[in-house]
Structure formats: structure tokens, C-alpha cells
Amino acid sequence: MRIEPLEEKQFSWMLKPLVWMMKRRMHKVLNPFKAWAYRPGITVAMAIFMQSVEAYKVTDPQLKRLVCLRSAQMIGCVF
């Protein structure tokens, strides 16, 4: 069973800033985000967590990129 992605007009008001930032960076709303939009509170919490991980200054940025790349490879992410 697959989750049917929501359309932008169905997104909660809480997700509008995240949609704006995603469009600004990637020029479109990614499909995983459209599925996460069913649970806006969890989506916002996950976005805050991801921002805090990216902003953490102790870990070398190159190492962070390598870890992200490797984890994407492990789960079969196409981008």
C-alpha cells in the first residue's frame, strides 16, 4: 500500500514556510515531503532536527556530506 501524496493546496499552514524554503532551494516540492505533510507536527519537528544537525559546527562539513551520501546510497535514494 502506498501513501497518496498531498497537493500543495492541502498542506497545513504550519508547512507553508518549509514549502517556500524547499521551492527556493530545489525549485520544487519533493515527493517525500508531500507524504510527510499528512503529519505536519512531526514534519516540522523533523525539519528542526535536520537544521540543528546541519548547523552543528564540531563535525567536519566534508564528513557530514560523506555520511549523507553513504546513507542515501544504503537506502537507494536516487538523488
Rank of each mutant, 00 (worst) to 15 (best):
K9I: 03
Q10T: 04
F11G: 01
W13Q: 14
W13N: 10
M14T: 08
M14F: 13
M14S: 13
K16N: 04
P17C: 00
P17I: 01
P17K: 03
W20A: 10
M22D: 04
M22S: 05
K23D: 00
R24T: 06
R25F: 00
R25C: 01
M26F: 06
M26G: 01
M26L: 09
H27K: 15
H27I: 07
K28P: 00
K28G: 01
V29T: 04
L30H: 11
N31Q: 10
P32S: 07
P32G: 05
F33I: 08
K34M: 05
W36H: 12
W36A: 15
W36K: 14
A37H: 09
Y38W: 12
Y38E: 11
Y38H: 12
G41Q: 14
G41L: 13
I42D: 13
I42K: 15
T43D: 07
T43L: 05
M46D: 15
M46S: 15
M46R: 15
I48F: 15
I48S: 14
I48K: 15
F49C: 14
F49Y: 15
M50F: 15
Q51C: 11
Q51P: 00
S52A: 11
S52L: 10
V53I: 12
V53M: 12
E54K: 10
A55Y: 01
Y56C: 04
K57L: 02
K57H: 06
K57F: 03
V58Q: 08
D60M: 05
P61G: 01
P61H: 01
Q62P: 00
Q62Y: 03
Q62W: 04
L63W: 02
K64Q: 01
R65Y: 00
L66K: 09
L66F: 02
V67A: 11
V67G: 03
C68V: 09
